[in-house]
Amino acid sequence: MKIKIVLTLICSTLMLSCFAQQAADSIADKMLVYQLGNGGWPKQLEDKSVVNYGATLTPELLAKIKATKDLHATFDNKATSREVVYLVKAYKKTQNPAYLKAAEKGIDFILEAQYANGGWPQYYPDKALYRSEITYNDDAMINVLDILEDIVTKKNDFDVVNVSYIPKAERAVTKGVDCILKTQVKQNGVLSIWGAQYDKDSLQPAKARNFEPASLSTSESMGITRFLMRFKNPSPQIKAAVTAAYNWFNTYKIAGYRFERGTDPKTKEKSAALVPDQSSMVWARFYDLDKNIPIFGDRDNSIKLKLEELIPERRNGYAWYGSWAQKFIEKDYPKWLATNGK
């Protein structure tokens, strides 16, 4: 009898433990604490310390979070989009209503931050420096659009979001796609790819930090192109945009190389460089808007034409080349083309 009681208690304890794990998510709980009053999330706190969901919420850290103003709300470095995606998934697993409420508040913030022309700034409502520019950099705007399109299509667990968000998200996506199509750079009347950020009024490519000049930006353009490829039965304008991006990437690929940021075995110093690799193709991160040649921005706001001309800190501290479009060229575009045609 005693054994039976003990076993029953053990089973009950295990069941309660499982229920507790389902009902709560420690990361999601921390995201609720970090969420700002306007619904967005910061990437850094008021003291410039980086948001870290692995850190223990000590009284000191809680004070820093509380001191962080709404102006820190951003889409940079996946902030806000990361939290909304995580909280939706956490809600689906746990059914904790606090997670869904916070995610929907984040979606409200996303919708509010969109410009009338369809673009999103890097920060909202902060307009200092380049923060008000329409920002494709680091996929800021595309991460937001992916969330909204997931709401419309009820994918990636966004079927849990209140249905009232579907028409709002649909309108926002339509405006966002219109902005994307309008900002694809034309060279002598021919569509190419996109810049990393744009003036919010003129829709012309703009610079950000000193080493991020107004230019064609390959990493961001690949993210934009993949977003456009999400749509079933794409419009002629979307087809033209995707095909133009393919043509540009195919024309300006640097075949037979990969980019490495390693250590020089002779000098023991860090050294970023292209190294031969017949299985790889790369693109520079930035290209001149008219000449389609690689350019490299330095800390002093100067533009160099060779990676080796940069100061060591910049040369070795940035992803100046990448194979961002290799899979797109070799597999994804041919597959998309077979389904959608030019």
Results as ranks from 00 to 15, higher is better:
N143C: 04
M141A: 15
E133V: 07
D126L: 07
D126I: 00
N117W: 05
Y130D: 12
L148C: 00
K155I: 12
P125T: 09
I151R: 08
D138L: 06
T135D: 03
D138C: 01
K127Q: 14
K127M: 10
T135R: 03
D138T: 05
G119F: 11
V144R: 13
D150V: 00
Y130E: 09
I166G: 08
E149N: 11
S132D: 14
R131M: 01
M141L: 10
P121G: 03
R131Q: 04
Q122T: 10
D126Y: 07
R131G: 00
D126C: 05
M141T: 12
P121W: 05
N137A: 13
L129M: 15
V152A: 02
D159P: 00
D150I: 00
I134Q: 00
V152E: 06
G118L: 05
V144F: 12
D139Q: 13
G119P: 14
P121E: 04
K127Y: 07
V160D: 02
Y165I: 00
V160C: 03
N117G: 01
N137L: 06
D126F: 03
Y136S: 10
I166P: 11
L145S: 14
G119V: 09
N137I: 10
K154F: 02
K127T: 13
G118S: 10
T135L: 04
L129T: 13
V161I: 12
A128N: 12
D146A: 05
I147C: 04
D157S: 08
I134N: 05
P121L: 06
A116G: 08
W120Q: 03
V161C: 09
E133N: 15
D159E: 05
D139V: 09
D126M: 06
R131N: 06
D157T: 04
P121R: 08
N162R: 10
D146W: 04
Y115I: 02
D138I: 01
D157K: 03
N117A: 05
I147G: 07
K154W: 06
V161Y: 06
T153R: 13
E149R: 05
I142D: 14
A140P: 15
E133M: 12
V144C: 11
D159H: 01
G118E: 09
V144S: 09
I147L: 12
V161D: 07
A140T: 08
D139A: 15
Y124Q: 04
T135Q: 05
F158D: 01
L148G: 00
Y165Q: 07
Y130A: 10
M141D: 14
V160W: 02
P125C: 11
I142W: 12
K127V: 05
N156K: 13
M141V: 06
I166C: 07
Y165P: 02
D146Q: 11
I142T: 15
V160I: 03
N143T: 03
D159G: 01
I134F: 02
L148S: 01
D150R: 05
N117C: 06
T135V: 04
V144E: 15
K154L: 05
V163D: 14
Y130V: 01
M141F: 08
P125F: 07
S132P: 10
N162I: 00
P125R: 15
E149M: 04
Y123E: 02
V144P: 14
V160L: 07
I134H: 01
N156D: 15
N156R: 14
Y124W: 14
D138V: 11
D150M: 02
A128V: 09
P125E: 08
V161T: 04
P121Y: 01
S132G: 12
G119E: 12
N137F: 13
P125S: 14
I151F: 06
Y124A: 13
